[in-house]
Amino acid sequence: MSSVTERRSAGEWLQLAIGGAIVAVMFYPTVWMVLSSFKTNRELFRDPFGMPSTWRWSNFAQAWEQGGLGGLYMNSLIVTTVAVSLSVFCATAAAFAFSRLEFPGRRWVYRLLLIGLLLPPPVVAIPLFGLLRDIGLLNTLWALILPGAAWSLSLTVFVMTGYFRSIRPDMEEAALLEGASTWQIFRDISVPLVWPSMLTMAIVNTINIWNELMFALLFITDDEKRTLPVGLIRFFGRYSTDYTMVFSALTITTLPILALYFLLQRHVIAGLSATAMD
């Protein structure tokens, strides 16, 4: 048993100092981004490191308005919420079937669903464009929701099936003896049982779909239907010489997510490491 309350040794101080220095250097660009968003362009050139002389909150209002960030946020929110719910629900039902039921073609379908782990989405970008155009979904948010959900299925099914298999089906078998139907068992017993893993996959898929760029770039042409990543790039293209404006837009779009992350840090990290291990 090593105790945590012992005094720090010289080696531990060294560990703290080296770790702290590296972490500080890594985190500094983020701090620089936030500080720069309060400055004027001239101030940014003259003194890139210093504190802003006055804290110009108006920069944010201006970036929010001119970049139409409200609409971008809304679209990203809709796409992410619907796509993540869809993929986690479908994947959980499928994982339940793969691990708890027996039906013809079970192994075959399971392997088929994992194909997405081996192929990168850019491979299908062009045929997918044709398909979405033919079924009339191009330039709607569905063009991001459905492919986004579909491409995150492989990982979600893989992780959820693994999680189901790690839990013994005692509760489900007991419910079966009580006369519950398969659907009732799934809804009332299995889903509450695998809830932690569903939450983990929801977090992982949220990060991926919220940040998705290529499909959003190709399948959406209306400015009102763009999501945050594409909007940010276009904003950057339009105001590439108005540096503080771009910094303000960057800060507005990243700070809420950073804040949320630091709030939920424990869950995010536990979730990601659990995913990576299984």
């Binding site: 983020t30 990543p229 990243t254």
Partner: peptide, 8 residues
């Protein structure tokens, strides 16, 4: 924390 920033 850089992981939470979007790639863009």
């Amino acid at each position: 924390s850089p992981m939470v920033l979007s790639m863009t």
